[in-house]
Design a protein around this nucleic acid. Structure first.
Lengths: 347, 347
DNA sequence: GCTACAGATGTAACCGGTTACAAGAACGGA
DNA sequence: TCCGTTCTTGTAACCGGTTACATCTGTAGC
């Protein structure tokens, strides 16, 4: 492990100069700079990040807060991989790395610094590692922790959930807009009784999608019937159950907008179980455009989220705070209605 | 930010004692220990990880080397989320965190320490952060980098690919065994002409699955016909093309084992396009048990990998090296044949 | 020729822990 | 009582960088 001291000795300069070469090259004369750079390269010198973080009081790491909701085991993020890749590449091009923050009961016992104000232990982790910023993935449970972060002044970007604070912003799909578009699409196909199966209560995207559903109906000049709104939890099973309930209504819907593709698949199965043909007897539209959407039969019409865009936008917002010291406005990512077979537009 | 010094002052002891309380509690008298622990808790003290890493020459972070293969864009890890969750929780219970290592051309320009011997820059990252260990996810391109890591003496666990070194081991599904079981299952159903669509050449799991295919045939007393082995690349499209080629043979197979579910789905589509009924005219078995496997029609019979087991096993192996200083034997995770509809066993 | 000032570099304090070593206290045995 | 252990704690060096400040050199201005 080559240190800056060795580089300095070999160049006949002080460590301070070596440090300056890499941190404020403009303050070093051209000849010295070149000599140091050359020797550093020859020796394969790479600065010790711990020492760097210690003295700068700031590490080159961005924390990723992501936990599964214990109330919802088995939940899968619809596009975690795209998200991570987008974040990783954007952050790394500015020299930052992603630290997957993890906490556990066990860790809580063995380490100090976990208090009642921070039941999950993330705040402590954040301080402990002197993180440069945070990316927060909504999992439902951590809402309180999120606001605690936002108020701490640490640069924060939340995904899928609104967050405000001095240096906090968020990235969200246009959930309401996408839902409204889906509903308008169904209305344009002639449907008058359009139902929805919502996401879990209290979940921000779910709420926005329900709101978009109502807005879409209004824009299409259709009335909202509370009869046609049933609650779900984003999982397939709840889509199945919800659809069954809807089909049991006196006047069942001719179309349904499910707030997630998983639930849309459940609705498809329920329709099939009830002997209905999709889309002939019932039109179905989902939300997310997960991989299975194109594979189910009939292929699912759905509102696609900009998956790589999420990571890129989050990284961009964070970098703006880290490098420009400005707090960017919340980002609303456009959605795209992907028309396949389950809505009956293609025949 | 509370430091150990403040805790020490408030307790009337030296910083050394505070440090000992958290690192070697046995060397501190019970009364002192309790006093320090109490004050630390009251002040919400959490040790600075940078300082800790600097003086211990070892950070509490495990690097995750995971890059997409540039030759295979769009590749998705079949169960990244399960993997990460398993790793994360197992590691965090021992106080370790996961650092997603990222490198990029840009980062390479701006930082020293990236040489020809380490074109990807991971080795430098590893040193720079004083990582405790590494988890390596096979992506095909990084094979050389992997051996470099393994030889460096840093604790390494590779997933899906063999790796040896003083402190290196690996976790793999029983790809050969799973494939053999799938083939025996098909043979037991009466099939005599069983084809396979292989994964990409040079990919370790792909090779093992092909080997298992041959072994399964041998165990069933069937001859191997090179006519019935076609190459694929794990992607759906190659499954489609491969199946079409197989169906064009003079004597087409009555069953096919695809080395990935994606390719199995492709094969399903090709069979349908050729007017064949699955499983009546053609039996299909896949590998992985990805989410879509249960959703396609007919539902796919497939060899399931132990998804959460991967993360847990990897973390376990790594922790054994980190805490016990022993290098565990490679782990071979059992697979499980999930019989659904595409093989014709259920009717 | 002298002062003022900018530019380049060195000196040394500092970041916040860990730990080898020293020193003091307590205690048992001769 | 004295010595040798063992236990506990303090002192201070150290990890490897960053950076405020001091110093030195050279040059422009008067």
């Amino acid at each position: 492990m080559v240190t800056a001291r060795e580089v300095a000795q070999l160049c006949g300069v002080s460590v301070a100069t070596v440090s300056r070469v890499f941190n404020r090259p403009a303050t070093v004369s051209a000849t010295t700079r070149e000599r140091v750079e050359r020797v550093a390269r020859d020796l394969d010198f790479s600065p010790n990040e711990s020492a760097r973080a210690l003295s700068r009081q700031q590490s080159a790491m961005v924390g990723l807060v992501w936990d599964t909701d214990h109330r919802r085991p088995g939940w899968r993020h619809p596009f975690l991989q795209d998200l991570l890749l987008g974040l990783k590449s954007a952050l790394s091009s500015h020299g930052y790395h992603l630290l997957l923050l993890a906490t556990s009961d066990d860790a809580r016992d063995r380490h100090p610094g976990v208090s009642l104000a921070d039941p999950i232990g993330y705040v402590s982790m954040t301080r402990r590692h002197h993180l440069a910023g945070l990316v927060l993935i909504d999992s439902g449970t951590d809402a309180d922790a999120f606001t605690a972060f936002a108020q701490s002044g640490l640069p924060c970007v939340a995904l899928d959930v609104a967050l405000s604070g001095p240096r906090a912003t968020h990235v969200t799909s246009d959930n309401a807009g996408g839902a409204a578009e889906a509903v308008r699409h169904l209305a344009a196909l002639g449907h008058r009784r359009i139902a929805t199966i919502t996401g879990p209560r209290g979940n921000a995207p779910a709420t926005a999608r329900t709101e978009g559903y109502r807005r879409g109906l209004a824009e299409a000049g259709l009335p909202v019937s509370e009869d046609l709104v049933v609650g779900g939890d984003f999982y397939r099973e709840s889509g199945f159950v919800g659809m069954r309930r809807l089909l049991a209504r006196k006047e069942p819907p001719t179309a349904v907008f499910a707030a997630s593709d998983e639930m849309a698949v459940g609705a498809l199965l329920a329709a099939r179980a009830a002997g209905l043909r999709v889309p002939a007897d019932l039109a179905v539209v989902g939300f997310d455009d997960i991989e299975v959407a194109s594979l189910v039969d009939p292929a699912l019409t759905t509102v696609a989220q900009d998956k790589p865009g999420f990571g890129t936008a989050a990284a961009g917002a964070l970098l703006a705070m880290l490098e420009n010291a400005t707090t960017p406005e919340p980002v609303l990512l456009p959605t795209k209605l992907v028309v396949r077979d389950s809505c009956g537009a293609r025949r």
